[in-house]
Design a protein around this nucleic acid. Structure first.
Length: 532
RNA sequence: GUCCCCAUCGUCUAGCCAGGCCCAGGACGCCAGGUUUUCAUCCUGAAAACAGGGGUUCAAAUCCCCUUGGGGACGCCA
């Protein structure tokens, strides 16, 4: 901790960014920012068969969506690469370097070529499983004389390169001082002579990761617990190379509802799916931060900046955490409800467009109207993606509204409903409800709804529309006149206007729907009543 | 099978390292009320946990041991 921290998130582009990976990235990011260190994004793309550009793009997009900006790493489109002296940040770009290291290791007696066939390896594995309990390579080529090995290589014989795990002393062990798990001992005879270079000469994870951690001067490795055993192999490699090892912190796994490592079987694990469904990224970050860490034991909601200020590795938990989608939904709702209406509309716009309800131009053209529409539904959204669904009834044809069952029931509750609806329709002519589209004047919507929010704009002197609260007052009076309870009138009215049994304030809806559309919907509902 | 890790309400967790302030605090969810034209929001309240057993100690959720339970790793994947 004398030198500034350099940490990395090193995903392999073999699939979309997983929420578990996102949390690992997040903790690395928090640590770097909290300590004034450097956050590095490195692409571990040595599995060429499974690496794809699509996955790489997905990872980059996911990182940016969460706001986890890296200080060093692959350049983004439109960005010019600058030489940090630590790159390249794609492992596939430095195979020569890895091979050199293996050569060096061989010279020092820490690596050797292995000519075993797949069958031989398998046979050895079975034997070792019986003898040691671990199905590992039986080191049969470890003792091969260098001259013979070189001759066989020269002869073109297929071979991989293995790391020579120290076998002396017999009961030797290695202690990992993990920042989360504490001091953990491993028996060296349990450790495989793992493969560093495939038979086609391409390097493998433990080699590349260690070499890069050295080359990039990584100070702290913070990664998932599934890598714990790799820390042993890597530590041994650092030792063989006679270089200083970084410190390790292995994070407990994120679990699914079934208590096992989170998988797409039990949850949505592709981070960008959450973006595509309109979840607020700030909420996802907040939620992920809390999976294995706590702000102060009391606070649940905090910004990334606040998390940075409060972050410390020793507050990281030791046990796995179940990914609770219900709590995440709640948190997203909290963020959405705290979003200013204008921002909410901006964020919901792509979803409105995708749903075919309004394109960007249409939203821009009647921005005040859309703001109001969204504002009066605000506490009913958990995510931006729900906006089109909740607002759908507004865009429906007035004579072809979808009625939910409960709404139909409300409509048919009283045989007099049609009369009441007609009375309300008549009331509409007595008050000044703004006209519906396309006649609707922009002025009508410069009033910000709901009314407890101050109007964003001074209303002109010509503003003569009846405010929702006044419409409500008149409707209450009407109910009294009809000799019925307010609720008796409102329920069928809501059903007629929205097709639903619940929803936003009814008189905000009346105001926004406008006079003509209200009447059309009442007519349609009345027709439905008389025909059934 | 072998090795490793973990263990507080259903779930996320605070407390544990530096035992007494804890008949265990917060949050989600659940349940019950309240507010509302409805739904949602919001407010109030309730139920809900130290896995079990041994120690150590005046005192243990906190320290030690065992058991049980859960998880992870054992690839020419990362």
């Amino acid at each position: 901790m004398h030198r500034p921290a350099r940490v990395r998130f090193a995903p392999s582009p073999t699939g979309p960014l997983h929420v578990g990976g996102a949390r690992t990235a997040l903790y690395n990011f928090l640590y770097a920012r909290a300590t004034g260190g450097t956050f590095i994004l490195r692409i571990d793309d040595t599995d060429e068969a499974r690496s794809t550009d699509e996955s790489l793009q997905n990872i980059l997009d996911g990182m940016r969506w969460l706001g986890l900006d890296w200080d060093e790493g692959p350049t983004r489109p439109g960005e010019t690469a600058h030489d940090t002296g630590y790159g390249p940040y794609f492992q596939s770009l430095k195979y020569e370097r890895y091979r050199e290291v293996v050569q060096e290791l061989w010279d020092r007696g820490h690596a050797y070529p292995c000519f075993a066939t797949a069958e031989e390896v398998e046979a050895g594995r079975e034997r070792m499983a019986k003898e040691v309990g671990v199905p590992m390579y039986d080191r049969r080529y470890r003792g091969l004389a260098r001259a013979e090995a070189e001759a066989r290589i020269a002869g073109g014989e297929a071979h991989v390169w293995r790391f020579a795990t120290p076998l002396e002393p017999r009961d030797g062990k290695l202690t990992i001082d993990d920042r989360i798990k504490g001091r953990v001992d491993f028996q060296l005879d349990q450790i495989d002579d793992w493969v560093m270079l495939r038979n086609d000469g391409t390097p493998l994870y433990n080699l590349c990761s260690s070499v890069d951690d050295v080359d990039m001067a990584i100070t702290d490795v913070i990664r998932g617990e599934e890598h714990f055993i790799n820390a042993v192999k890597q530590l041994l490699l650092f030792r063989a190379l006679e270089v200083e090892a970084p410190s390790f912190a292995h994070l407990p796994l994120i679990l699914g509802k079934d208590g096992k490592k989170l998988s797409k079987r039990v949850a949505q694990t592709n981070l960008l799916d959450y973006r595509d469904q309109g979840y607020p990224p700030e909420a996802i970050v907040n939620f992920l931060t809390l999976l294995g860490w706590s702000f102060d034991g009391e606070r649940e909601l905090f910004s990334l900046q606040e998390a940075i200020a409060a972050f410390s590795v020793d507050k990281l938990g030791r046990s796995g955490s179940v990914f609770d989608e219900e709590k995440m939904t709640w948190m997203c709702g909290m963020y959405v409800r705290a979003t200013p209406v204008a921002d909410l509309v901006d964020r919901a716009a792509p979803f409105l467009e995708a749903a075919g309800l309004m394109d960007r131009a249409a939203i821009a053209a009647s921005r005040d109207y859309v703001d109001n529409l969204v504002a009066c539904h605000r506490e009913r959204f958990d995510r931006y993606g729900q906006v089109p669904d909740k607002l759908g009834f507004f865009f429906a044809r007035d004579d072809a509204l979808d009625f939910e069952e409960k709404a139909l029931k409300n409509l048919r509750k009283s045989p007099e409903a049609a009369t009441w609806l007609a009375a309300f329709a008549a009331l509409l002519d007595e008050v000044a409800i703004p006209p519906s589209w396309p006649e609707r004047p922009a002025l009508a919507d410069s009033l910000s709804l709901p009314e407890n929010e101050a109007p964003r704009r001074e209303l002109g002197t010509g503003f003569a529309y009846t405010k929702p609260s006044e419409i409500e007052a008149r409707t209450r009076a009407l109910a009294e006149q009809l000799g019925i309870g307010f609720g008796n009138l409102v329920a069928p009215l809501r059903a007629a206007l929205t097709g639903a049994a619940g929803g936003a304030g009814l008189f905000d809806i009346v105001y926004l729907l406008g006079c003509e559309r209200c009447k059309l919907r009442i007519e349609a509902a009345s027709a439905l009543l008389t025909h059934s």
